[in-house]
């Protein structure tokens, strides 16, 4: 469960103040996938960062009784000089999981072949995202943060990735940001709309989508 208590967030870009949260109160229950809808710049990613703990609310607080992942598929930390295996080992050390088990899982899942033991800088963009996605899937979290699922690999791999992901979030929960309503319908059973700094929770995804569509027209 993740709870937002009267969360305010104001930040400044080039001298301009922007408030993306005005007293948000929300509960994201454990084991439920919640979609986060809103137009560009509404603050979806900021809210995601607040929940992940990368940013601090200006006021209010956010707490959670479970484990929260880093954004699924995040590859920004991978070091070009390290091999795929070494990059994976780094993460397993940080997250306190068994190094060999995670490494074996990712090696098998990402289908990188011998590239797995070559420096990350030699990877194609498809290989990079397969590795990043594999690491995210290798560790169990109570809540997965998904910011715009990037399509990973070819059709066959996509099916496999999607399958693993569905099972992962089937037993855990997720917070999903996506501009594709298809993805939202497929993955989420609840949805919230972020608009002018306030968050409206919907028990039904379709209600949220129609609210969001209304917003987009205006």
């Amino acid at each position: 469960m993740i709870v937002c208590e009267n969360v305010w967030k104001t930040y400044r870009t080039r001298g301009e103040e922007k408030t993306v949260a005005r007293g948000i109160n929300a509960v994201f229950p454990t084991g439920v996938s919640v979609a986060l809808l809103g137009r560009n710049g509404a603050g979806k990613s900021t809210l995601m960062n607040l929940i992940a703990g990368n940013q601090k609310p200006t006021r209010g607080r956010i707490w959670s009784d479970g484990t929260i992942s880093w954004p699924v598929g995040f590859a920004g930390s991978f070091h070009g000089e390290l091999t795929g295996a070494q990059n994976v080992r780094f993460i397993s050390r940080v997250y306190g999981v068994d190094t060999d088990m995670l490494s074996d899982f990712v090696e098998d899942f990402a289908e990188l072949g011998q590239h797995y033991h070559m420096p990350f800088r030699t990877y194609s963009s498809g290989m990079r995202s397969r590795l990043a996605f594999g690491v995210s899937m290798g560790i169990r979290f109570d809540t997965y943060l998904v910011d715009e699922v990037t399509s990973v690999g070819d059709e066959r791999f996509k099916v496999k990735a999607n399958d693993v992901f569905q099972r992962r979030i089937g037993s855990s929960g997720a917070l999903v940001v996506s501009h594709s309503m298809g993805v939202i319908r497929q993955m989420c059973s609840k949805a919230a709309v972020l608009e002018n700094g306030s968050l409206t929770m919907y028990e039904n995804v379709e209600d949220a989508i129609s609210h969001h569509m209304e917003n987009m027209k205006r």
């Binding site: 484990t67 992942s69 999981v97 899982f105 899937m137 290798g138 560790i139």
Partner: peptide, 23 residues
Amino acid sequence: LLEQDGLRARKFRTGRTIFALVM
């Protein structure tokens, strides 16, 4: 799927992270 928990209160978390960063 691997059932390894991320970040469950395992011991020496700070120590492990520092070790990983040093390595």
